[in-house]
Amino acid sequence: MNYVVGIDVGTRMTRAVVVDDTGCERGRICQETGARLEVAAQQTLEELCVRHGVDRNLIVYVASTGYGRYRVPFRQIQITEMTCHAVGALRQFPGTRTVLDVGAMNSRALRIADNGRVVAFRMNDRCASGAGRFLERVAKSLEIELEQIGALSLRAQDPQPISSICAVLAESEVINHVTAGKPVEDILRGAHNSIAERVVALVRQVGAQPEITVTGGVTRNAGMVAALEERLGSCVNVSADSEYAGALGAAILAQQRWQRLQETPSSPERATA
């Protein structure tokens, strides 16, 4: 049996998904990226093989995506995260027409056609407002674990507004709320609402159509999903698999490409694969 791998080297996490030659998922993994992207990619692949009992020599094709996609030395192809998230989201939720990818540094809104083609696209390219890093900073300034803030925010009685768009200036605002004796839950909900507002603005720019599927690392955070749903005024598709949408999309595209290459035997890529 042959395997193909999709690897998504993000600013904070590197995720990989392995599928077999029929396109069925065989395993997944998520590790911190750190500063050395090549090392992160290599280690993630090795760990994926070890954990899921995949023979490295049977991996015939690798597609990389994410901001570090050009720094994956063992890739056969690199694909933009936009395309991968669209394909991954569509596999996970076939009714998807809008994808909202909220990562550590970047948030993207994509409108897609029913075949997965991206029709419109917007992202926060200038600054970290409306991205996961905003929450990381808030969590840090409140001295609360990142994993806990979502659940805490859901207990808010009176959400406190955070008016700064800037993740750095928002920190001082959080400290001001703390000094004023505001409950942590209310401050956290305010922070989640602030990001939701920024992200939903991106969604409106692409012209959202149901169903809306949320992907990216921030989907781990139930409070963020709730804040997004409140802002959008509608439910969103999200599951435990959502953070892997990019890597899954890359794996699916890799598998399709591998298949095509098999059908055209003269391709030079086959020999190297």
Binding site: R126, C166, A167
Partner: peptide
């Protein structure tokens, strides 16, 4: 990068 948060990442990339 202009954003303070983004610049942290950029610095890490340059060092790497």
């Amino acid at each position: 990068n202009v954003c303070t948060v983004f610049v942290e990442q950029e610095i890490m990339m340059h060092l790497a």
